[in-house]
Write a protein that binds this DNA or RNA. Sequence first.
DNA 1: CCCTGATTCGC
DNA 2: GCGAATCAGG
Length: 177
Amino acid sequence: MSWTDERVNVLKKLWAEGHSASQIAKQLGGVTRNAVIGKVHRLGLSGRATPSRPVKRPPRLARPKPRLMPDGTVTTPTPAVTAPPVEEAKPAVERTAMTAPLPPMRLADGGAATILTLRDSMCKWPIGDPADPKFAFCGRKSDCGPYCTEHAKVAFQPARKRDTKKSQYDYVRRIAG
DNA sequence: CCCTGATTCGC
DNA sequence: GCGAATCAGG
């Protein structure tokens, strides 16, 4: 099917009325929603009422995936080597320190357990910002684990509600192809 | 998983 | 110009 004047008019009308691209495609027939969206863009009426989506995305770089050519050859375009501005996850220390329920134990000298004074039998729960000079460890007696009984409760929470196998699989597929 | 629009690029 | 593939997000 091609974009006749009549079909374009229907497209404009339905789009103006707020129908989604897939709905318009179904009504027109013979086109996919991608075709509708593509046409909408080409007509320059992409910006409809934006209810709740002020999403600004940086432009995607060219598809690096191999493409199967009609003659059977597979071409793998060299992907742009632009470093993606990936924001790293916060260090575990920061997250755990924020939820620390106990202040560092006071040592005999009045200070707190540091990396120098922390012994094997002492709780290794971090307290405060590692970059801070006052950064310390809990230092209470740790028995069968790295933490004291109080921090062990926080550190070894009962397993959080697991993701479904399905959604995990989706994630793996997303990153692994 | 379903859905939405946005974008790129081979055709 | 067209639209499939592929995005990012609800």
